[in-house]
Lab assay of single mutants.
Amino acid sequence: QLNAMAHQIQEMFPQVPYHLVLQDLQLTRSVEITTDNILEGRIQVP
């Protein structure tokens, strides 16, 4: 299920590496919260 959620987020934010999306999802278990984390700059994109 997390993989499906990660792919959904990757479609919206292809610039964010998959492993970072998955790592955040493991903590949040939420597409909405992880999306917010990306938008708020809480996930550092190399």
Rank of each mutant, 00 (worst) to 15 (best):
Gln26Asp: 06
Ile38His: 00
Gln1Leu: 13
Glu40Val: 08
Asp24Cys: 09
Thr28Ala: 02
Leu22Tyr: 10
Gly41Ala: 05
His7Gly: 07
Leu20Gly: 05
Ala6His: 02
Val16Phe: 12
Asn37Ala: 04
Tyr18Val: 15
Glu32Ala: 13
Leu25Thr: 00
His19Cys: 14
Val31Met: 10
Ala4Glu: 12
Val31Ala: 08
Ile9Met: 05
Val45Leu: 11
Leu39Tyr: 06
Met5Ser: 04
Gln15His: 15
Ile33Leu: 12
Pro14Thr: 04
Arg29His: 13
Arg29Ile: 06
Val45Trp: 14
Ala6Asp: 00
Met5Asp: 05
Gln10Leu: 14
Thr34Asn: 00
Met5Thr: 04
Thr34Pro: 00
Gln44Asn: 10
Gln23Tyr: 08
Gln1Tyr: 14
Val21Glu: 03
Leu39Ile: 10
Leu22Phe: 08
Pro46Glu: 13
Thr34Ile: 02
Glu11Val: 13
Thr28Glu: 03
Thr28Tyr: 04
Pro14Gly: 05
Leu27Ala: 10
Leu22Asn: 00
Pro17Arg: 04
Leu25Asn: 01
Leu25Pro: 00
His19Trp: 15
Val31Thr: 06
Ile43Asp: 01
Tyr18Pro: 15
Gln26His: 10
Gln26Pro: 02
Leu2Gly: 03
Asp36Ala: 15
Gln8Asn: 07
Leu39Gln: 07
Gln15Leu: 11
Asn37Glu: 01
Ala6Tyr: 05
Arg29Thr: 06
Gln1Asn: 13
Leu20Thr: 07
Leu39Phe: 05
Gln8Arg: 13
Gln23Thr: 08
Thr34Arg: 01
Leu20Val: 10
Tyr18Lys: 14
Asp24Tyr: 04
Gln23Met: 11
Tyr18His: 14
Ile43Ser: 02
Val16Thr: 05
Val45Ser: 09
Thr35Trp: 07
Leu39His: 06
Val45Thr: 10
Leu20His: 06
Leu22Trp: 09
Pro46Arg: 11
Leu27Asn: 10
Asp24Thr: 00
Met5His: 05
Val45Lys: 08
Arg29Ala: 08
Thr35Leu: 13
Val21Ser: 01
Tyr18Glu: 14
Leu27Lys: 13
Ile9Lys: 01
Val45Arg: 08
Ile33Thr: 09
Glu11Lys: 15
Met5Leu: 11
Glu11Pro: 03
Glu40Ser: 15
Glu40Tyr: 11
Gln15Ala: 09
Gln8Ile: 13
Met5Cys: 05
Ile43Leu: 14
Met12Ala: 08
Leu25Val: 05
Pro14Glu: 03
Ile9Gly: 00
Val31Ser: 06
Gly41Glu: 05
Leu39Trp: 05
Ser30Glu: 03
Gln15Cys: 15
Pro17Val: 04
Ile9Phe: 03
Asp24Leu: 07
Ala6Trp: 05
Gln10Val: 14
Glu11Phe: 09
Val31Trp: 08
Gln15Ile: 06
Asn3Phe: 12
Glu11Asp: 09
His7Ala: 12
Asp36Ser: 15
Leu2Phe: 09
Pro46Lys: 10
Asp24Arg: 00
Gln1Glu: 14
Arg42Ala: 05
Gln44Val: 12
Met5Arg: 04
Glu32Trp: 07
Thr34Met: 01
Gln44Lys: 13
Pro17Lys: 05
Met12Thr: 07
Ile33Lys: 14
Val31Glu: 05
His19Glu: 15
Gln15Asn: 14
Asn37His: 08
Ile38Glu: 00
Asp36Gln: 15
Ala6Pro: 00
Ser30Ile: 02
Met12Phe: 07
Arg42Ile: 06
Ile33Asn: 06
Leu27Pro: 01
Leu27Gln: 11
Glu40Arg: 15
Thr28Met: 02
Val45His: 09
Leu2Trp: 12
Ile38Thr: 00
Ala6Asn: 01
Ile38Asp: 00
Asn37Pro: 02
Asn3Glu: 15
Asn37Leu: 00
Pro14Cys: 06
Pro17Ala: 06
Val45Phe: 12
Gln23Ser: 09
Leu27Cys: 11
Glu40Phe: 11
Val21Thr: 03
Thr34Ser: 04
His19Met: 08
Gly41Cys: 08
Thr35Asn: 04
Gln26Met: 14
Asp36Arg: 15
Val21Ile: 15
Leu20Phe: 06
Val21His: 02
Ser30Leu: 03
Gln23Asp: 09
Val16Gly: 03
Leu20Glu: 11
Leu2Val: 07
Met12Leu: 13
Arg29Ser: 08
Leu20Pro: 07
Gly41Thr: 03
Ala6Gln: 03
His7Val: 10
His19Ile: 09
Glu40Cys: 14
Ala6Val: 09
Gln26Leu: 14
Thr28Ile: 02
Arg42Glu: 02
Val21Trp: 03
Ile33Arg: 13
Thr35Gly: 04
Leu20Ile: 10
Leu2Thr: 05
Gln10Met: 14
Asn3Tyr: 13
Pro14His: 03
Leu25Ala: 00
Met12Lys: 12
Leu22Ala: 04
Leu39Arg: 14
Asn3Met: 15
Ala4Val: 10
Ile33Tyr: 06
Ile9Thr: 02
Gly41Trp: 03
Asn37Ile: 01
Val16Asp: 05
Ile9Ser: 00
